[in-house]
Amino acid sequence: MQLWALDRDGRVMYRHTVVLRMEKARPSVLGADLLDITLTDGGDQRPLLARPVWETWYRGVPTTPNQWAPLGTEARREWLDLTATGLRDRPADRTGGVHHLDGTFVTDQPGLHCAMAEALVGPGNYFGREWQAFKDCLGGGFGIATPFTLVWHDSHIARRAFEDDISDEGLTYFEEIVHLLERCGVTVELR
């Protein structure tokens, strides 16, 4: 069975598989040939975690920056999942220009990817949910292509947040993202 989260215009925001278990069955109070069945969700708690995100997206794809900011890490992941539902409506790539990343709320990996997407392609749009997807997006086809300039405001917040998130190469996630951007032709200004 699937649970479909729809926005107010009927657009499918997300599909979630729900696994139901029959907990008990007993003769129904409505008649001898009927059963009252108690079902429970045997799946994860994702719909409960996603509810505040779905409530925001119910009004439509967000157009205001940082609506994801007050959310916790798991809810930010849900936010990123919803950005991916609009992939079929990708705009043509544009190059060049200066893009400003608001680093105020970049305190975890999902937050970094939410902020990066907003800076590069606008609120509610997709530009990767994790390292590999972000790298793929930098190759073009997702609304922007290199070269361009990224001005990362309050970059010290992400630098501090990722100081213990060290890769096999000895770099923090923050450093890996900056190096990846630069290798792909992005001029990065950390402020």
Rank of each mutant, 00 (worst) to 15 (best):
G42V: 01
G43A: 11
G43F: 13
D44V: 14
Q45Y: 08
R46V: 09
R46K: 06
R46L: 09
P47I: 03
P47F: 09
P47R: 06
P47W: 11
L48W: 10
L49Y: 08
A50M: 05
R51G: 13
R51L: 15
P52T: 10
P52E: 12
V53K: 14
W54T: 11
E55T: 15
E55R: 11
E55D: 15
W57T: 09
R59F: 13
R59A: 15
G60S: 14
V61P: 12
T63Y: 11
T63I: 11
P65S: 05
P65C: 12
N66V: 02
Q67Y: 13
W68Q: 06
W68N: 07
W68K: 01
A69S: 07
A69H: 05
P70F: 05
L71F: 07
G72W: 07
T73Y: 10
E74C: 07
A75E: 08
A75R: 07
A75S: 03
A75Q: 11
A75L: 05
R76K: 15
R77H: 14
R77S: 14
R77P: 11
E78Y: 06
E78R: 06
W79I: 06
L82Q: 12
T83H: 00
A84L: 09
A84H: 07
T85N: 05
T85M: 02
R88H: 14
R88P: 04
R88M: 09
D89G: 00
P91M: 13
A92V: 03
A92R: 06
R94W: 00
R94C: 03
R94A: 00
T95C: 04
T95V: 01
T95F: 12
G96D: 10
G97C: 08
G97E: 07
V98G: 02
H100G: 10
L101I: 10
D102F: 04
D102Y: 03
G103R: 02
G103N: 08
G103E: 12
T104K: 13
F105L: 04
F105C: 07
T107L: 08
T107N: 12
D108I: 05
P110W: 14
L112D: 00
L112T: 02
L112N: 11
H113S: 04
H113R: 03
C114T: 01
C114W: 00
M116R: 08
M116V: 15
A117W: 04
A117Y: 05
A117Q: 04
A117E: 00
E118W: 05
A119E: 14
A119P: 05
V121A: 12
V121S: 06
G122S: 08
G122E: 02
G124Y: 03
G124I: 01
G124E: 01
Y126W: 01
F127T: 03
F127M: 06
G128R: 08
R129F: 09
E130W: 15
Q132M: 04
Q132E: 03
Q132C: 00
A133M: 03
A133G: 06
F134P: 01
F134C: 10
K135L: 11
K135A: 11
L138Q: 03
L138A: 03
L138S: 01
G139P: 09
G139N: 05
G140I: 09
G140R: 02
G140Y: 02
G141N: 10
G141M: 15
I144M: 00
I144W: 01
